[in-house]
Design a protein around this nucleic acid. Structure first.
Lengths: 149, 149
DNA sequence: CCCGAGTGCTAGCAGTTGCAAGCACAGTGC
DNA sequence: GCACTGTGCTTGCAACTGCTAGCACTCGGG
């Protein structure tokens, strides 16, 4: 991490750690499940999940993936909170370009940069879409039954 | 990783490690830059980048982000290769661009023209290894100077 | 020949990640 | 009271990540 200023980077990392931890805790509370229940559903150890929620540890993307699965939210939502994925530019154009097998990665990036620049031109004051919390559907018995169909 | 069969999971993890490593190496070769140059651009140590490319180490998402920056491709492309992000299920680029309400018609056309031009380039120059002329733009001093403007 | 600059890699190490074992506490039923 | 089940957390440790110092090699110039 030589690129980072020593003091501010540490503060930033700590903040990011707390951000994803608090977000996970918030999602878990919203889902009304205990830390141990989530840990079991996610397939991670409960002490580790506890440490993550309190910002003491910084989980890998794989662990975030597992936690997302346990919470039944998208891994991407956690990645965004963890700062390893940008807010989705959103929309069919971005997805289509990314999925196009006829383009190289570099070409995709060039196209999307131009696309974004056009959008900025057209709507300079449009606010960015906020991360969604709609995935925090409460976990109930009824939900489990629906899950099995 | 208790959810996974022991033998197959190990094989799968190893494959994934080699996948992202080979992918990075391929992108680097396509960009015609040395391992050390990419390491410098990415802000990671060159021995570590070497180990990553050879599948000996499994980089974190943060490191992948840095490597993507050095390669000038999206971090998401690397995440997909690393198996921590799913391929977006997108529709055709043309349809998506045409349907995008954030763009003027002119902008749509410009984007689609560039898109088609890229595809043409790729069809004309595509051998089995699929290099791109855009991506294969040599990374020179001149480029660096242009980069800073 | 030597030297310098470049190449990719080896080896050892500090710090971090994720875990298992265990603790203290709360609530419930006998 | 006790035993049980559940809660979140502490601690120590093995494995891993990412680094630095250094190596061997190639190439070009003097």
């Amino acid at each position: 991490m030589d690129e980072h200023g020593e003091g501010r980077a540490i503060d930033k990392v700590a903040d990011l750690g707390r951000d994803i931890g608090e977000y996970i805790k918030q999602q878990r509370n919203t889902a009304k499940i205990s830390l141990r229940q989530l840990a079991r559903l996610a397939g991670v150890s409960n002490p580790y999940l506890s440490q993550i929620e309190r910002g003491l540890r910084k989980p890998s993307a794989e662990i975030l993936q597992q936690i997302a699965k346990g919470l039944r939210i998208s891994a991407e939502a956690l990645y965004v909170q963890a700062g390893i994925l940008d807010l989705p530019a959103g929309g069919p154009v971005t997805d289509a370009v990314r999925a196009d097998h006829d383009l190289t990665e570099r070409q995709k990036q060039v196209l999307l940069d131009i696309y974004e620049s056009f959008r900025r031109e057209n709507s300079a004051t449009r606010p960015a879409a906020a991360p969604s919390t709609v995935e925090a559907e409460p976990r109930s018995e009824h939900d489990d039954a629906a899950d099995q169909r």
